[in-house]
Amino acid sequence: MANVASLRPEADQKPIAIPGQPDMWVLVMVEALTFSAYFVVYIVWRMRHPELYLESQAHLSRELGVADTLILLTSSWSIARCVQRARAGEYQAALYSVFLTMGLGVLFAGAKLYEWVSKIQSGMYFTTNGFFSFYYFLTGMHLLHVLVGFIVLGVVVYQLKSPTRQNQEVIETGATYWHMVDFLWMIIFALLYLMR
């Protein structure tokens, strides 16, 4: 795949190629399937105790959930811009895009910690009920992937910093991971904050 990817002449005339390393796509699909199992189990449990889940959900701030979503969507846009800029040879601009992604990632993690602390202070713990177990588990597993994402973005920064590296395939691989963190949150947001 590397030789195909390096042949890309223009950003808008891309030949058919897997973005980044195929191994990352295997990981993305394994993670997607694992989270899929959590999501379906969540709905099954939710349907068994609908009142309890609705009542518990009322304690979450939908505004904060929307803010989290907008932050991650923007971070995803920014890392996609990074890929485009690196492809065009604009490595300095690409670096700014990764830093923006990282900054938004920190903001997201901060918002999540703030939310957890405010819930714990209001007496809502992992063991409070089924909904809150799922809430802490799903957001916790997701945040763990955000934290791993910082290491992945660090690798992208390392690639972009030196003219001797700047490997487009590695940059795309890092971006693919970060987008996975983004799309998993889209489903978590719908399940925890919006479903009735």
Partner: peptide, 24 residues
């Protein structure tokens, strides 16, 4: 409704941001 909207969002992220549109 919200589940369908989230599915649409995931597909947009996959196809546009992750460039699956151009993938094999």
């Amino acid at each position: 409704g919200v589940l369908v909207i989230s599915a649409v969002k995931v597909r947009m992220i996959l196809r546009e941001f992750m460039e699956v549109r151009h993938a094999p």
